[in-house]
Write a protein that binds this DNA or RNA. Structure first.
Lengths: 241, 241
DNA sequence: AATAGTTGTCTATTACATTAGACAAATCGA
DNA sequence: TCGATTTGTCTAATGTAATAGACAACTATT
């Protein structure tokens, strides 16, 4: 069991306690139904005041991760984190099938943009070329699990936005352009704090950590067809290569 | 350009400004040598006071990311983040070759443990079996870039600790056990805040974000040979699949 | 029924984060 | 050289984080 404290670094102690306890739960040190150490014991472990621990527990209770029962103790309610597989043939919905009952993807908007240097390099086109940008939010069992922005070359996929709004999966949309197979060329993974927009859309506590993946898909000739920037809440998701 | 603010979520505003500006720099919106917006402009962008922005800039200056010059402005000093490739044939030192002048790995310690459920499952052995645990810290050009813990079955690699202390790379150590080829079976990636020990070892500001990778390597027969838990500072590293 | 152990609530105090304003010091161009 | 722009420093006020202690409410065991 790790001990925190020392200096804050701009992250409040109650917040670090939240992260530490959630890590114990997700990491399997505490199983569903287990009783947590008493507030007094946790306060000692984290060299914090009992009130500070209570604030952390209140956050976890709010998230549904733990539940307190007066006189008895505080118990682990739900311990699961989804795994998102990444590989040559990554398909969003297939990968999560079986891990959640209901998977939904909500179209947030689309627009025509001029490719910036990053997007242009990923898609192998000139900077400034027209690209279609799609914004989407995916949820599993009602809880948001990813906020994705996808760019595609306008020249090749001029009306991709309409087809996506039609409710089709990307696999089907690509097929409608005659692309019956595609694969993952590269995935870059980083991590950072969520900003306010992401916090709201993903239903996170401000200051939550995101796993950020930048993925390029290519058709069977190796030509890039899409560049996707996906943001996953680190507390609900992990990526498996 | 993203705007932050709203509620804190336990992460101080100056800290979120640090993360946001660093992201702009690493993400290429600001190149090395570029002048940042003035403190007044940044204060407006983040809906913060100039003093709060100054605190954030002081942290970035301390990290060597930016430098302020009275009367002139604040400039980007160093913008690079290392990329760590992950794939079937992941080799630590090869992957980073060319990105840093000097790569060192420091052995922090080793001990005999009884495998817990996680380690046992990864190595395909019984929980409670004896395993050798190795702790190491890797640095590029003097800056720590990963803190790794590796477990190997004691039965198969009884004196692996001595051989590692001898200064050999894992590739050579495995070869000394007759394993001339091995590959990566799976990699799980998550993210969280650093705890105090990690903060100190990796030379990070408290509250820094870590990319956590759990990797299982297998020999040519597909038998697991090692389970490695590596922690990378998200501000200095990204993972590329 | 009594008691020990646990969570729930209240008040008070101290340290840190943030805002606010004013002015000094350095740089650059007109 | 002047004036506008920018970073550096100081003082002060306010709100949130964290500590501290006391006691109520509830649970389980003896």
């Amino acid at each position: 069991m790790t001990v925190l404290k020392d200096v804050s670094g701009g992250v409040a102690l109650w917040r670090r306690i939240v992260d530490a306890i959630r890590l114990d739960i997700i990491g399997g040190k505490l199983a569903e139904g287990d009783r947590l150490p008493t507030e007094a014991a946790l306060a000692e472990r984290f060299s914090a005041n009992r009130h500070t621990v209570r604030r952390a527990l209140a956050v976890l209770a709010d998230e549904g991760v733990v539940g307190a029962e007066q006189g008895r103790g505080t118990f682990v309610r739900s311990a699961r984190r989804l795994s998102y597989p990444i590989g040559k043939r990554t398909r969003f919905s297939e990968g999560l099938a079986g891990q959640a009952r209901m998977l939904t993807t909500q179209h947030l908007g689309d627009r025509l943009e001029n490719a910036n240097a990053t997007v242009a390099a990923a898609l192998g086109i000139r900077a400034g070329s027209k690209v279609v940008r799609l914004d989407a939010l995916s949820s599993a069992d009602g809880k948001p699990i990813s906020r994705a922005t996808t760019w595609l070359a306008y020249r090749r996929f001029p009306d991709v936005a309409q087809r996506v709004i039609g409710g089709q999966r990307m696999t089907a949309v690509f097929a409608s352009y005659g692309i019956n197979d595609y694969s993952r060329a590269s995935t870059r993974i980083s991590a950072r704090h969520a900003d306010v927009e992401e916090t709201q859309l993903l239903g996170l506590a401000p200051g939550a950590i995101l796993l950020v993946s930048e993925a390029v898909d290519v058709d069977s000739d190796g030509v890039p067809i899409s560049y996707a920037l996906s943001r996953f809440p680190a507390e609900r998701m992990e990526l498996v290569v």
